[in-house]
Simulated scan of single mutants.
Amino acid sequence: MAKDKVQAPKIETFADHHVITPPNTLKHAVRRVIDRELDDPVARAEQALANLSGEFKTWMQAECDRLAAAHAAIVKNGFSPQTRGELFRAAHDIKGDAPTFGFPAAGAAAESLCRILDHAPDLDAIPADLLQHHVDAVQAIVREHNTIEKAGVANELSSRLRGIADEFLKAVNQDRPDHLEAILAPSIAPAE
């Protein structure tokens, strides 16, 4: 195969500078298409997401079951690196998946639970009710999601849980200013 002739760059000289324009060697790799042949990957992705949307409730329910099982293990056996890790991962997965699946308020409640597990200096000192309320809130938000009137309640519930969690974390981290700064940072979970 013969190699194409190498083109030299075009150099324009001015009084105080030079403009060097390299040759367009990719010109032969471009193919013009007509409008009806255009592929819109964003539209394809949105269509694929729409096709899967019927499964979102089932997937979120499976994530809620995983969260409840992780919490039940802590209630039964207490905190260990394994039980803490499983509860954190379950809440973290919900935090990430919930907005995509149409459950942003559940994501906010799950983020609040993650913050508690991240910033509490003594996991055994976390009030059992605080953990239970977070798990119950995520489950209720997912379960009652189809009732449009509940949307305001879900957001309010998530917001109040975050406030209670922040107050707890401020109290237990008074002597840890580096953690207080992270605790006082605004939420990164998407909100409606």
Results as ranks from 00 to 15, higher is better:
Ala72His: 10
His134Arg: 09
Ala125Asn: 11
Pro104Met: 03
Asp124Ile: 02
Thr58Asp: 15
Phe103Met: 11
Ala109Asn: 06
Gln82Asp: 09
Ala140Arg: 14
Leu161Pro: 03
Ala189Ser: 15
Phe168Ala: 05
Leu49Asn: 12
Pro186Lys: 11
Asp118Gln: 11
Arg84Asp: 03
Val153Glu: 11
Ala182Arg: 15
Phe79Leu: 12
Gly152Gln: 13
Asp65Thr: 09
Pro23Trp: 10
Gln132Ala: 15
Thr83Ala: 06
Ala15Phe: 08
Pro41Ile: 08
Ile188Phe: 06
Ile34Ser: 15
Ile116Thr: 00
Phe56Arg: 11
Trp59Met: 10
Lys10Asn: 11
Lys95Ile: 03
Leu49Gln: 13
Gln47Arg: 14
Gly78Ile: 06
Gly96Pro: 00
Ala15Ile: 05
Lys95Tyr: 06
Pro186Glu: 12
Lys76Gly: 09
Arg32Trp: 10
Val135Asp: 02
Ala185Glu: 15
Pro190Leu: 14
Leu161Ile: 01
Ala108Asp: 05
Lys95Cys: 04
His119Met: 04
Ala110Lys: 01
Val172Phe: 02
Ser187Trp: 02
Arg31Met: 08
His18Asn: 11
Ala15Gly: 12
Arg31Phe: 07
Val75Thr: 07
Ala90Met: 04
Ile74Arg: 06
His133Ala: 08
Ala105Ser: 13
Asn77Ile: 00
Leu184Thr: 04
Leu87Met: 13
Cys64Pro: 04
Ser158Val: 03
Leu117Cys: 07
Pro81Arg: 14
Met60Gly: 02
Arg160Gly: 05
Leu52Ile: 09
Ala98Pro: 02
Ile164Cys: 03
Asn24Asp: 09
Phe56Leu: 08
Val6His: 06
Ala90Lys: 01
Ile74Tyr: 04
His92Ala: 07
Leu157Gly: 00
Ile141Gln: 02
Asp40Tyr: 04
Phe79Lys: 13
Thr25Lys: 11
Thr58Ser: 13
Arg115Pro: 02
Ala62Lys: 13
Ser80Asn: 05
Glu55Ser: 10
Ala91Gly: 00
Leu26Thr: 12
Asn173Glu: 05
Leu180Arg: 05
Ala2Thr: 07
Asp16Thr: 14
Asp16Ala: 09
Ser80Arg: 09
Pro99Ala: 08
Met1Pro: 09
Ile188Arg: 12
Pro81Ile: 03
Phe79Gly: 06
Thr147Cys: 14
Ala15Gln: 10
Pro22Met: 14
Lys3Ala: 09
Ser159His: 04
